[in-house]
Amino acid sequence: MDNIAGTKSCLVWAVNLAALALVLLWTIPTFGLLVSSFRDRDQISTSGWWRAPMSAESTGFERAGTAADQVAEGDLWVISGELLQEGQGLRAWGTSSRDPSAYTPGETVALKDGQELTVSETGTYRLTSPTEFTETRGMRIFLTTLDPPRFTTENYARVIGAEGLGRAFMNTFTVTIPATVIPILIAAFAAYALAWMEFPGRALLVAGVVGLLVVPLQLALIPLLKLHNDIGLGKGYMGIWLAHTGFGLPLAIYLLRNYMVGLPREIIESARVDGATEFQIFRRIILPLSFPALASFAIFQFLWVWNDLLVATVFLGNSSDQLVMTGVLRELLGSRGGDWEILAASAFISIAVPLFVFFAMQKYLVRGLLAGSVKGG
Rank of each mutant, 00 (worst) to 15 (best):
R39C: 10
D40R: 01
D40H: 05
R41L: 10
D42G: 12
Q43I: 01
S45K: 07
T46E: 13
S47T: 03
G48L: 00
W49V: 00
W50N: 02
W50Q: 10
R51M: 08
M54E: 15
S55W: 00
A56Q: 03
A56H: 00
A56K: 00
E57G: 03
S58G: 12
G60S: 14
F61D: 15
E62S: 13
A64F: 00
A64H: 01
A64E: 03
A68V: 04
Q70D: 14
Q70P: 07
V71I: 06
A72K: 07
E73K: 05
G74H: 04
D75E: 14
L76A: 15
W77I: 11
W77A: 13
V78P: 08
V78S: 13
I79T: 11
G81K: 03
E82Q: 11
L83M: 12
L84S: 12
Q85A: 11
E86V: 06
E86H: 07
E86T: 10
G87N: 04
R91Q: 10
R91Y: 05
W93D: 13
G94V: 01
G94K: 00
S97W: 02
R98H: 10
S101Y: 01
S101A: 11
A102D: 11
A102P: 03
Y103I: 08
T104M: 08
T104Y: 05
P105T: 07
V109P: 10
A110R: 07
L111E: 14
L111C: 10
K112I: 09
K112F: 06
G114A: 11
Q115C: 14
Q115P: 08
Q115E: 15
L117R: 07
L117M: 11
E121N: 13
T122M: 09
G123S: 09
T124I: 06
Y125S: 15
Y125Q: 14
L127I: 06
T128C: 08
S129P: 03
P130C: 12
E132I: 07
E132G: 11
E132V: 10
F133W: 13
E135P: 06
E135S: 14
M139F: 08
I141N: 09
F142V: 07
L143F: 11
T144K: 11
T145H: 10
L146A: 15
D147Y: 00
P148V: 02
P149E: 04
F151K: 00
F151Y: 15
T152H: 05
E154V: 10
N155Y: 06
Y156V: 05
A157M: 09
R158P: 02
V159K: 01
V159G: 05
I160F: 12
G161W: 03
A162K: 03
G164K: 02
G164Y: 02
A168R: 01
N171W: 01
